[in-house]
Design a protein around this nucleic acid. Sequence first.
DNA 1: TTGTATGCGTTATCAC
DNA 2: GTGATAACGCATACAA
Lengths: 338, 338
Amino acid sequence: MDKKITIYDLAKELNVSPGTISRSLNNHPSISKKTKDKVVLKANELGYKVNKFAVNLRTQKSNTIGVIIPKLNSHFMSTLLAGVEKVANEAGYNLIISQSLESVEKERLNAKTLYNSGVDAILVSLAFNTENYDHFLPFINSKIPLIFMDRVHNLPNCPTIVIDNFQAGYDATNHLMHQGTKNIMVITGSLKRNVYADRVLGYKEALKANGHKFKEELIFETTLESKSVDDVISYIKHLDEPVDGLFVLADSFAAHCIKALKKENYNIPQDIKVIGFNNDPVSQLVTPTLSTIEYPGYNMGLLAGESIINQIKGNINLQDTNAISLRHKLIERESSGN
Amino acid sequence: MDKKITIYDLAKELNVSPGTISRSLNNHPSISKKTKDKVVLKANELGYKVNKFAVNLRTQKSNTIGVIIPKLNSHFMSTLLAGVEKVANEAGYNLIISQSLESVEKERLNAKTLYNSGVDAILVSLAFNTENYDHFLPFINSKIPLIFMDRVHNLPNCPTIVIDNFQAGYDATNHLMHQGTKNIMVITGSLKRNVYADRVLGYKEALKANGHKFKEELIFETTLESKSVDDVISYIKHLDEPVDGLFVLADSFAAHCIKALKKENYNIPQDIKVIGFNNDPVSQLVTPTLSTIEYPGYNMGLLAGESIINQIKGNINLQDTNAISLRHKLIERESSGN
DNA sequence: TTGTATGCGTTATCAC
DNA sequence: GTGATAACGCATACAA
């Protein structure tokens, strides 16, 4: 375990050539079973371990997949990542994970670092404020597979994995209206991001379908961080026409809103019906329990992992899989009940 | 952006030797500023980018830190990781993250993979059921820095970063008793892990200090997964002497317990006072809000990152930092009130 | 089926 | 202050 032993050592030890050692270890078809067995045995005996650095240099591959996500410590993201990790791991790939912390600058830096690290592929979920996508060009130009997950953007040859946010927004809004709400406010994250923008579009469409008029002042854009709750509440309190429905595009923030509203003596769901998004564990733990849209984070991760590995290995038809859309589901709980 | 350009290309282009290029790019002191500038300029012009694979092979370093944690999708772990990532990133290190999913087998596999990947160091938080630590030996023998975070074990030359779980357990129990509880039950994760075992020790000590007798049947070991809540509740219901205090060693599980108890018509905190652990966001969102022990996950991550990088760079005295203990804090909320 | 030889792109040791 | 040159450890094209 002290000195590093190489294929040359094995070669000397067994009186064969280094090439034979290399081929044996890689299970190359042209090597006799006898030789292979001999080599593998000796390798184990001497505690041989391939030098990945050399392999990487030789093959110009790293067996590594880069990941850029906004935040590690959100339930959705870490669940998604757990899915990616599972698949990647089983396929023998390592994950290099970096977070943009919702800032383009950091995202740009991360992209550069990952590119320079020589990742074989990259998985991205965009930051709140990304509007320019040039930092992904190196990957595209170098034909390094790039897949967007959840927070996506259309770039040539970059598949996307999403849910139908438009339909989900529609479903949530529709549900609230069926429960009798007339004046539904939407609390959203950055509208630069498809996940939020599309849900808002769905919201608008649902209003229309139910014969309601869209009012700009009922869209409230925020960072969805807990500290912003007060802004939301005071905004709600000062609206001319009282809000009776709240569509919050993240469960964790919805939970904070519910808590703050209760403190202000609003009854949920009697005064205001609330629906969230994500089916975060917290949605079942708040009082009242939170209606929400189920969001298949883990499956999204699995799928992203599988897709990117297929792309690395080249066994995929890009045309076929330009956008994968997963199924969402409305979950009715107490916060939107009657 | 098409063809990869190397230091040889730059050398030819500028009529100097590859060595000079390399030195210039690495800001070697023996190179004249004039040459350096010239080289850097040309490098940018041609879009030169170092080949990390070659650098790694040459230096036998990867600028990469491996991480093994039980689960990505827990608030504490992802927060801790966010801290590590921040430090590592700033220091130019990449993180290769893998999860054991609370299984030794997977942990062992991950360790092997990371070792073979040639990580420069490794950060570990142990799985529930790890009892044999041989899979970490290769790192120790190869003098690859290894630091345990939170769920730790004492191995030679492997510093640990923890909180004082004994004291925290003591504090939590003591608090409950000061609130008037007489019969406190502990819901714990695997007692093979220091984080849980030490808290239970603290619990026992607090009992003793308050003149109470320890009863074995008041320790309930579980996976702390939400599906196990029913077992806990039915156990509680069938105890001879009614439980009036609950010390749950994870907030998320405590939240589930509270919910289940309320469903069984227990009043919290009147019938049973509850305290959790971690100060997970959910602790502020449940009703009643959950008393807990603040757990500095992010700081732990920062510290782990800093320590491991110091160790990689060799500027540290191992003796001095064999165990770093961070400060915890009791947070009193409604669930343990009067 | 196996051996030989070269190159992957750097860094580092000697020279000069 | 700069240039040659030899590793680093492996995979592979070409020979045999």
